[in-house]
Write a protein that binds this DNA or RNA. Structure first.
Lengths: 365, 365
DNA sequence: ATTGTTTAATTGTTTATACAATTATATGAT
DNA sequence: ATCATATAATTGTATAAACAATTAAACAAT
């Protein structure tokens, strides 16, 4: 990185010097609290007038990279120590109203509060466009980090969003859902294992014909489907394709209501249902009730998530309890460690889910 | 305000000029988008060198007061138009996970997004201490406004929080719950009217012995209790104090579970229950189920709120549907109008609730 | 030991001058 | 009418040369 000023470049000479200095700082050649050469020294080295070197330095002072002290010289500011940084973390979830988003936001929010940080909550509706909009806002607000639940858009698109943060050195943690081929912190639960256990539970209760309704847009539900298949296979039950309802669409109550209705119309084909997540399970309850089908007497069902209201009703769902609050907490902890300067490679945290047995499954045979 | 530079003052001449210019701008002598004199003109007027006038101008450019345009001159920036202000609004709710908070946050968040603003969500757990903590954060983050659901603390305390914002000219909207004696924007629903209608509905269904379980900490539930009493009175049913369970405590599942249990133990004393809000109603469902009491066959019940999952289950609740999303939207609209400079007196918006009849009430006689 | 004084290094302020770059506007060419 | 070109106003860049102000550090006086 030689310091050569091109007198004939169209780029102003003060700007060439300014850029060179900035590079030295950003690349750590000149470290925080280091003294940079005096105006006079720089003038001699570069062959510029002192006023010109001064202009370069002054600009960097205005930009917050340097402090000047009379008689002592000019020094690189330690931006970490002077914590000039923002203490806000952005959270991109599908919809703050639904699913596990509120619980995740609360876990993240509490952990943020522990570190005197606040959270900006953004609902993406699983749409790339909306996520992109919120990404602009978060960058404008100079957030110190982002917890990102990927959208339903293809990986490339989510990648794009991710890059907009990482390019600006804004740490990102993916929560719950993964994106392929990225080197970024990630907090999730073991959906394969969870689904495996749930399916095994159904099998051990004597169920052999188990229908499953999941979305295949997200890594989480894809893994649940895999866990389901593995369990069937391990217990010698052949996979019945007509019982696998894997929809390449995000969850929308209206659409899934129809799927549920269609599935329940052929309720004689299976004895148990694996719902992709609790909200789908609720749809089954609701439609079953309308159709005069009793859960669990006619059909058994398991869900996934253990949302807060799972147990508030007279009908209670056996489900895989995900530690969503903890997921929010852990995600925020990772962000905080990055904000504090941690530069280790990408970390992955897999939290344990646990089967909560209630009364939506009846033994068979 | 004469422009005189004192050559012998210890204050640098560029700084004298800079200060003079700033005064002219702040006092409106030079208005936004006005052109200020050129460097040369200022140099002539003041007797300074062009480089010196330049330094004064350049500083004001760096401070964001002026823009320079080659060939055209230097202009005063219109800071309102160039919205240099923060575009974040804080939302203080009891708990982002529960009750209507998620829906409120979403309504406010969407309206904020329409105005290119973002929301910082803070969970107070109805505690003054936590609300105070978050208030500090919000002030630090220079939020442009705050939507505040008052805590369970006494009015004086909520007042204190409110003042910390208003003293700094941060507009506040109270959402849902009121505080006495404050001149501040307020968005709510007519809880008295809503409760009156619900009670009337029960009465017209033939119920005469109607138990009520509410918290009396919040204006909302107090008004519901008043509406209940008024309806009884209007329909000539004497108020039976032993059926009024008014608790001066915030809602906590554990505590209220006990109240519900106690109330259901004397289920022969009443034929219907007015639950202070939907979550309380769910407790009644849950406990009734455990105790082998059937809703609505043994006891009828109504709730209040119409939370999203009210209708997801086989058991469906008749309740007063509050337009929570709209409440969030309207609150944010008020904030936005303040941010845009509206200085009218305090405004109050009362949204209409509507009775949603499902199947938790059976007619009597 | 504390206080005052000097010294030298460095940034801060100011002037004077010159030429470069940009661009709205006017002018001229097609 | 449209496009190209020149003009002039203004800010932008650069140099050279002083002197002022601040202050750490060395030194001196009490």
């Amino acid at each position: 990185m030689p310091l050569i000023i091109d007198k004939h470049s169209p780029i102003p000479q003060y700007f060439q010097l300014q850029t060179w200095l900035l590079e030295q700082i950003e690349q750590g050649v000149i470290k925080p609290n280091d003294k940079i050469p005096t105006e006079e020294e720089l003038a001699q080295k570069t062959g510029l007038a002192r006023a010109t070197t001064r202009q370069a330095i002054q600009n960097l002072v205005n930009m917050g990279y340097l402090v000047r002290k009379r008689r002592l010289g000019t020094f690189v500011i330690d931006r970490d120590a002077n914590n000039n940084r923002q203490t806000i973390v952005g959270i991109l979830v599908p919809d703050i109203r639904s699913g596990y988003a509120p619980e995740l936001a609360r876990g993240a929010g509490d952990e943020a509060a522990n570190n005197k940080h606040s959270i900006i909550v953004c609902s993406t509706d699983d749409s790339f466009i909306k996520a992109d909009f919120h990404t602009n806002r978060l960058i404008e607000h100079c957030v110190g980090g982002v917890i990102f639940v990927p959208t339903a858009a293809p990986d490339e698109k989510n990648h794009l969003l991710l890059e907009r943060f990482t390019r600006r050195n804004i740490p990102v943690v993916l929560a719950d859902r993964a994106i392929s081929d990225v080197e970024v912190d990630f907090v999730t639960t073991d959906n394969f294992q969870g689904a495996y256990e749930l399916t095994k539970y159904l099998i051990l209760k004597g169920h052999k014909k188990i229908a499953i309704l999941v979305s295949t847009l997200f890594t989480t539900e894809k893994q649940r489907l895999e866990g389901y298949k593995q369990a069937l296979s391990d217990y010698g039950i052949p996979l019945e394709p007509s019982l696998v309802f894997a929809k390449p669409e995000p969850y929308l109550e209206k659409a899934y209501l129809e799927y549920v209705r269609a599935i329940l119309t052929h309720k004689d084909k299976f004895t148990a249902i694996f719902a992709g997540h609790d909200r789908i399970a609720y749809l089954f309850y609701s439609v079953a009730n309308q159709m005069g089908i009793s859960i669990p007497d006619d059909v058994s069902i398991v869900g996934y998530d253990d949302l807060a209201y799972t147990n508030s009703y007279s009908v209670t769902l056996t489900t895989m309890s995900q530690p969503i609050y903890a997921m929010g907490e852990e995600s925020m902890k990772l962000i905080m460690s990055r904000i504090r300067g941690n530069v280790s490679g990408s970390r992955k945290i897999v939290l344990k889910s646990s089967l909560v047995e209630r009364s939506s499954v009846l033994p068979r045979n």
